[in-house]
């Protein structure tokens, strides 16, 4: 009985833990925290999207990414956003935007002064262009870097190739 309870608690914790939770406020993180979050996501296919509230193509792309990743969510695909906006207390700008336009979008926000702080964790050669989307396999390896807005159809094809 104790073991069952422990399992239930563990399951609940896992369900609540980012990056899987929907309608989670944008969380400002540093590079170490972000790296740790990506390690936690191993075993899943991660679609990592670098975006900004001032980037119009990004804003057009996020709904498509949400649609496509929701379609294959059961196959262990998760969408993680990283907002590269200038940091503000409590990620308030990013969170206002996320909540208003994409309430189901799970995204981190950068905490430090450098725009490439979080992106450098997976791509030290990122050229500070948004949107940039990385497809990361279940072992945590980046298998594709996609720059510029892509359609739902293009993302669907690329993600399905990884499943």
């Amino acid at each position: 009985m104790k073991a069952l309870r422990r399992l239930l608690v563990c399951g609940f914790v896992l369900l609540c833990a980012p990056p899987l939770a929907a309608e989670t406020p944008a969380k400002p993180v540093n590079a170490a925290e972000f790296k740790s979050a990506l390690v936690s996501a191993r075993g899943k296919v991660v679609v990592l999207n670098l975006w900004a509230t001032w980037c119009v193509p990004c804003l057009r792309e996020v709904p498509d990414l949400l649609t496509v990743t929701n379609e294959v969510n059961a196959s262990g695909v998760v969408l993680i956003g990283v907002a590269i906006d200038d940091p503000s207390p409590g990620a308030s700008e990013v969170e206002r935007f996320r909540k208003k336009y994409f309430p189901d979008f799970f995204t981190y926000a950068r905490q430090g002064p450098e725009m490439d702080e979080l992106a450098s964790v997976i791509d030290p050669a990122w050229n500070e262009v948004v949107p940039t989307t990385y497809l990361i396999d279940r072992s945590g390896k980046v298998v594709r870097r996609i720059q510029g807005k892509k359609s739902a159809q293009e993302f669907r094809k690329m993600i399905k190739e990884m499943l």
Partner: peptide
């Protein structure tokens, strides 16, 4: 070819 924000 970049449908995005190059910022360059």
């Amino acid at each position: 070819q970049i449908n995005g924000c190059p910022l360059k």
